[in-house]
């Protein structure tokens, strides 16, 4: 398993070889409140960095989840359909959204490390 990186829109991405796991950060889930619904992309969908990849809804808010990198969707976390609460309970574990096969691994370098992300969170508060 590689390092976990973050975006300013509070997605995380964890790379393992040429496949990356994507989800939303613990901070993002805490801001949304209880997640009630997730709309995941179709398998095989080709995403460009910054594309709207998924939608996550809580009782009081809805927000888009953007692709942190470009690539093809190779797996989605279908369990979220019945258990969207996993995103609140374990966002970086069982609450993952999708797996993406990277088409341009160099895009990773533009993302934040965990330490950078923590500093970023501190800065926006």
């Amino acid at each position: 398993m590689g390092e976990t990186k973050y975006t300013k829109d509070h997605e995380y991405i964890r790379v393992d070889g040429d496949v990356a796991i994507v989800g939303i950060s613990d901070y993002a889930q805490s801001q949304l409140g209880d997640v009630v619904f997730v709309e995941l992309p179709k398998l095989g969908k080709a995403l460009s960095k910054g594309d709207e990849a998924a939608v996550v809804e809580s009782v009081k808010a809805a927000s888009e989840v953007y692709a942190p990198v470009s690539g093809e969707v190779t797996e989605i976390n279908a369990a979220l359909e019945g258990q969207p609460g996993a995103i609140n309970e374990d966002p970086e574990g069982s609450g993952w959204f999708m797996k993406v096969k990277l088409s341009d691994p160099s895009e990773l370098s533009g993302l934040m490390s965990e330490a950078d992300y923590k500093a970023y969170l501190a800065s926006i508060h």
Partner: peptide, 12 residues
């Protein structure tokens, strides 16, 4: 399911 509605989603 209010997240479909204008007071939350605004232009979406």
């Amino acid at each position: 399911l209010s997240t479909r509605e204008q007071h939350i989603r605004r232009d979406k």
